[in-house]
Design a binder for these strands. Sequence first.
DNA 1: CTTAATTTTAAGAGAATGTTGAAGACACAG
DNA 2: CTGTGTCTTCAACATTCTCTTAAAATTAAG
Lengths: 218, 218
Amino acid sequence: MYKILVVEDNLYIQNLVMEFLESQHYHVEVANDGEECLKKYQNNNFDLIILDIMLPKMDGFQICQMIRKKSSIPIILLTALGDEFDQLRGFELGIDDYITKPFSFNILVNRVKAVLRRTYQEDTKKMVFEDLNIDVDAHKIYIDNVEIELTTKEFELIILLVKNQDKVVTRRDILQQLWEYDYHGDTRVIDTHIKNIRKKIDRPYIKTVKGVGYILEK
Amino acid sequence: MYKILVVEDNLYIQNLVMEFLESQHYHVEVANDGEECLKKYQNNNFDLIILDIMLPKMDGFQICQMIRKKSSIPIILLTALGDEFDQLRGFELGIDDYITKPFSFNILVNRVKAVLRRTYQEDTKKMVFEDLNIDVDAHKIYIDNVEIELTTKEFELIILLVKNQDKVVTRRDILQQLWEYDYHGDTRVIDTHIKNIRKKIDRPYIKTVKGVGYILEK
DNA sequence: CTTAATTTTAAGAGAATGTTGAAGACACAG
DNA sequence: CTGTGTCTTCAACATTCTCTTAAAATTAAG
């Protein structure tokens, strides 16, 4: 499920946007100003930020600049009709899209979907790798059509591997995708889950790439 | 596709409501005042009217009265928190439901669905999952042709599960569909109803997908 | 072959989540 | 107004999942 951070000081709009997005099954968090935004941003890993330009303390551009120093997470800017908004400046700052207020539900959702699709390829409902079949909706996985019971974390992890079946998924990637934030210290959670999955699934083989991560092999 | 007429002079709300409803695949037309409303009403055939009380020229009650002289089309009234709204008077006039502003997306959509269902019996008449048969109209369910008594909530819940028989129904989905809550706090209502259903029905099995929701299994 | 780095593994503590019965709140019919 | 059934809340309990730890195994490099 995609995690979106909405930064907006107007509580009414904040709430509306949140409801919109949640009804479409996004996970949403909100921040009221730049400070809160950066704080939340650092402690979570979001897939998208929706950022109002006019904010107390720090404006959207500034926030954007600070975030861009560290990451290329997609950002959609909210601009009011009166705001002087230089489109060029926006895109120079690495804005992925912008929406002019007042905006409509459809526009918002479409833009969000588009940006997410562009950035990550949006989830398909079924996934396949060799004899492994995943029915994402039903939360079920099959090997040779035999159902295998996995826990949520295991399920998410195998999905991540299948999604990236042609490349090594680094430990860092895994931590970022499945957990809130980087455990800088070392932790063996991933290994443990990998072990548990291997116990349940022997094929496709989860190959270890030492010092890097994991990748699926036939 | 259902056609809905939204009568509201505040352009912002008008637009919002329109967007909400269109996102749910209703066909929507808008009118800004009573006159326009009556005119549009006569020239189209709508399935539902959503009517603001406070309108220029003619208020919602008056409009309602005029429409009721000719037709029994369902009407949902929009009232603001401050408005003195006499519920009784409303229902005497043949109001089908009313919503107090500010309202949320879910409330609006749920009310609309409910009214339409009540009026036009939107649901399919029969549903099946394995040995489970549901006669939606008669509000009865059968297992191996033996009738099982369920309460309303239990009935709605099992319908939801059968309707989505191939996918996990999340707690969030359930809350949104059967209640008008937004999923923020934590409540155990769902679990309790599931428990009660399980007591009455053992097959099909309601499987728990921990951390996600429920799904039917044979 | 030895050493250092890294991963695997099992076991169990700790956290999260779900289940249940009981009781209170509520709604409706009589 | 009262009684009956239904819905919701609560809290104790049960279960499952996740994460930590530490020792063992594996790998890469000198």
